[in-house]
Amino acid sequence: MRELILLRHAHAEPTLPDQADIDRPLSPQGLAEAEAAGRWLAENGLVPDCVLCSPARRARETLEAVLTAIGYVEQRLEDAIYEATAGTLAGLADAHRETGRLMMVGHNPGFERLAALMHSGQSGDYRGMPTAGIAVLALPDQAAIEPGVARLSAFWWP
């Protein structure tokens, strides 16, 4: 079995006038959420082998706080995660089939729809994923990312 960990970015500040959405930082609440997410991952032995992170500032800051708790892991910014659909996210995860435990840090609605699609087979069957929420999906080694292929093994939120 391998695992896909979906970590939604923590709570961000509202967009300021003349500020691009991609540049929104974490709020103080968001920083606390991200730190708690990192502790939960560490306490549950869910340290990823590789992390793909949205280039959005709030996602990068979430990952930085998580890494404080879990330590350094291989990571890279992935432009396609920002504003991604469940299909785009599935393609990214599928391209990393060889990774035993892949974590992606990004956004809704793409993350909650991907989790629902992989678990129940329908992307419209999602129930929400709060800021800094974590969905851990277990799937067979080398299995393609497709509807219904995964089991939701854990779901956490601050």
Rank of each mutant, 00 (worst) to 15 (best):
R58V: 07
S123N: 08
Y126P: 01
H107F: 10
G100R: 02
S120V: 11
M129T: 11
T68W: 11
W157F: 14
I145N: 01
M129K: 13
P55H: 00
M104A: 08
A37K: 03
E43S: 15
R97D: 06
A150E: 07
R97W: 07
M129S: 14
T88Q: 15
D141L: 14
S120F: 07
M1P: 08
G148F: 02
F155S: 05
A20S: 09
G106V: 08
A143Y: 07
Y126A: 08
Q29A: 15
N108I: 01
Y82I: 03
P130K: 14
E83F: 03
T99H: 05
G148C: 06
Y82T: 05
N44Y: 12
P140Y: 02
D23A: 11
S120A: 12
V105D: 03
L6F: 08
A84V: 02
L117P: 00
S123D: 12
R57F: 05
L139W: 07
I5D: 04
P109I: 05
W156K: 09
A95T: 07
R39S: 14
H119F: 00
M1A: 11
V149Q: 04
A86F: 07
L41K: 00
L102I: 03
L4G: 00
F111W: 02
L31H: 09
P55C: 01
A69V: 09
H119P: 00
G100V: 05
P140D: 09
G148Y: 03
Q122T: 03
A138C: 05
E98K: 13
H119Y: 00
G124T: 13
M104P: 03
L26G: 07
L46R: 15
S120N: 08
E3K: 15
G30N: 09
P158C: 12
E74T: 09
H9T: 01
A138H: 02
Q75K: 14
I134Y: 01
A154P: 05
A95E: 08
T99Q: 11
A37E: 02
Q142Y: 13
N108D: 01
T15C: 11
L67V: 11
V51N: 05
L7R: 00
L46I: 05
V66E: 02
R39E: 14
W156E: 07
G124I: 09
F155A: 06
L16Y: 06
A65M: 12
R76A: 13
E74C: 08
T99V: 15
R2E: 07
D94P: 03
A12Q: 04
V47R: 15
P140R: 06
R101D: 01
P130R: 08
C53E: 07
I70A: 01
F155G: 02
R76Q: 12
S153N: 07
S27Y: 02
G121T: 08
R97E: 03
D94I: 10
G45L: 14
G87N: 13
E74G: 09
I145L: 04
A154V: 12
L114A: 04
L31N: 07
L139I: 04
A56W: 02
E98Y: 10
M129N: 13
